[in-house]
């Protein structure tokens, strides 16, 4: 993993965090904004798992366990928020 790549990932995560915070400042959060926040969180989590935790080059099982946790958690949250819209 090159240092330059790690720096790029860090900047991307910082920008994504500020974007999430900015969305949260909206007076009324709509369903598309909720989905956007969850997608941003998925991308952030993905980058942390692949590049900071260094699971990119690890056997699929280990990557799948942690990525599976991320996606399952976000899916359950999305389901609960979707049910709340009804």
């Amino acid at each position: 993993m090159s240092i330059h790549f790690l720096n790029v990932i860090w900047v991307a995560l910082m920008v994504a965090t500020v974007l999430t915070w900015f969305i949260g400042k909206s007076v009324q959060m709509s369903a598309p904004l909720v989905v956007m926040v969850l997608v941003i969180s998925a991308v952030k989590g993905w980058l942390i798992i692949y590049d900071f935790m260094a699971l990119r080059r690890v056997k699929f099982l280990w990557r799948a366990l942690v990525l599976g946790w991320l996606l399952l958690t976000l899916a359950v949250i999305l389901l609960a928020y979707w049910l709340g819209l009804k």
Partner: peptide, 19 residues
């Protein structure tokens, strides 16, 4: 340490942002 970060990545939007 990365796990602690990963958990907060979900906790922050869930508790502070999503309405």
């Amino acid at each position: 340490w990365h796990m602690v970060d990963l958990v907060w990545i979900i906790l922050f939007p869930l508790v502070y942002i999503m309405r």
